[in-house]
């Protein structure tokens, strides 16, 4: 039972650490756009580049 004297203050410290982490995440803009990245992964913004790379690749073959 005496372990609680350590564990309860530890839990407080853990929560405060979480608060600091959250503060960091929010101020660095981790939550500014919660929708865009989900779509970005599906967007082929690399397509034009690939088109440019095509001719040399043909040369290799």
């Amino acid at each position: 039972m005496e372990a609680l004297f350590l564990l309860i203050p530890l839990s407080v410290v853990a929560v405060l650490a979480l608060v600091v982490l959250l503060w960091w995440a929010i101020t660095t803009g981790q939550f500014d756009d919660c929708e865009g990245p989900a779509h970005q992964i599906l967007m082929d913004d690399d397509t034009p580049q690939r088109a440019e790379q095509l001719p040399p690749r043909h040369k290799d073959i």
């Binding site: 929560v15 608060v19 929010i26 500014d32």
Partner: peptide, 18 residues
């Protein structure tokens, strides 16, 4: 403003849970 609101909300959420 949005970041401020979000942080205040998150802080309250963490506090409430614990």
């Amino acid at each position: 403003d949005k970041r401020r609101r979000l942080f205040e909300l998150a802080l309250a959420a963490l506090g409430m849970m614990q």
